[in-house]
Simulated assay, not measured.
Amino acid sequence: MLTMNDIVRDGHPTLRKRAKDVSLPPSDEDKQILNSLMEYVQNSQDEEMATKYNLRPGIGLAAPQINVPKKMMAIHVTDETGKLYSYALFNPRIVSHSVQRAYLTTGEGCLSVDEAIPGYVPRYFKITVKGTTIDNEEVQLKLKGLVAIVFQHEIDHLNGIMFYDHINKVDPYAVPVNAVAIER
């Protein structure tokens, strides 16, 4: 089981590398890694498990964050209506996005970044993601709002991009043009 000790921190070289595609169908080893990513995010949201294993709560985790430079990520988050989005994907990619932007009013955080970094992170309000499940099925997901932001954050990890790279360096709280403010 993954713990906070398995998560590499900001400054680790793997976080800035472009991850490699996972060969499909996935190997047993790759399936095990993907399962461990999902297990972490689910367990980290369970108060008892998080306390027992000293897990920092997270809603998404990408393989580069555990020093595995491969395109794998897990998301376990509920949207503003309470609907659960729980996906573990190989080779996820954004195939289309809205012109309209969105940002979290609280800013973003990351399991690989220990300190809070203030500022708004502009993202797309709506995205369509394609990826492959652990059972080697291709899925296409139409996402919006918070869930779209979480997917973009994790897909950025697969491309060596950190959330704070998007923050306006001159005015961190500059509201992105044509953006929806999302409360979290």
Rank of each mutant, 00 (worst) to 15 (best):
G11F: 11
G11E: 06
G11A: 11
P13K: 09
P13Y: 00
P13T: 08
P13F: 00
T14R: 06
T14Q: 01
T14V: 15
L15P: 11
K17M: 12
R18Y: 01
A19T: 04
K20Q: 13
S23I: 15
P25N: 03
D28L: 12
D28W: 01
E29D: 11
E29F: 08
E29K: 11
D30F: 13
D30Q: 10
K31G: 05
I33W: 00
L34N: 01
L34P: 04
N35C: 00
N35Y: 05
N35P: 00
S36N: 14
S36Y: 04
L37F: 13
M38I: 10
M38W: 07
M38V: 01
E39I: 03
Y40R: 04
Y40T: 02
V41Q: 01
Q42Y: 04
Q42L: 13
N43D: 15
S44W: 00
S44N: 05
D46T: 00
D46S: 02
E47P: 05
T51R: 14
T51Q: 07
K52H: 04
K52C: 01
Y53N: 14
Y53M: 13
Y53V: 00
Y53P: 00
N54C: 08
L55W: 01
L55C: 04
R56L: 10
R56Q: 10
G58W: 01
G58D: 04
A62T: 12
A62G: 14
A63F: 05
A63V: 07
A63D: 02
P64Y: 14
Q65G: 11
I66K: 03
I66A: 07
N67H: 07
V68S: 03
P69T: 07
P69M: 05
P69H: 07
K70E: 07
K70C: 05
K70A: 09
K71C: 05
K71T: 10
M72Q: 14
M73Q: 06
M73L: 15
H76L: 05
V77L: 12
T78Y: 03
T78K: 15
T78A: 12
T78N: 06
D79P: 08
E80V: 10
T81N: 14
G82F: 09
K83E: 14
K83M: 09
K83C: 04
L84F: 11
L84Q: 13
L84I: 11
Y85N: 14
Y85F: 15
Y85I: 06
Y87K: 07
Y87E: 06
A88V: 02
L89T: 02
F90T: 05
N91H: 08
N91W: 08
P92I: 06
P92Q: 05
R93Y: 08
R93T: 12
H97E: 14
S98T: 11
S98F: 03
S98P: 03
V99K: 14
V99Q: 13
V99W: 14
V99F: 05
Q100N: 12
Q100M: 15
R101I: 03
R101E: 13
Y103E: 02
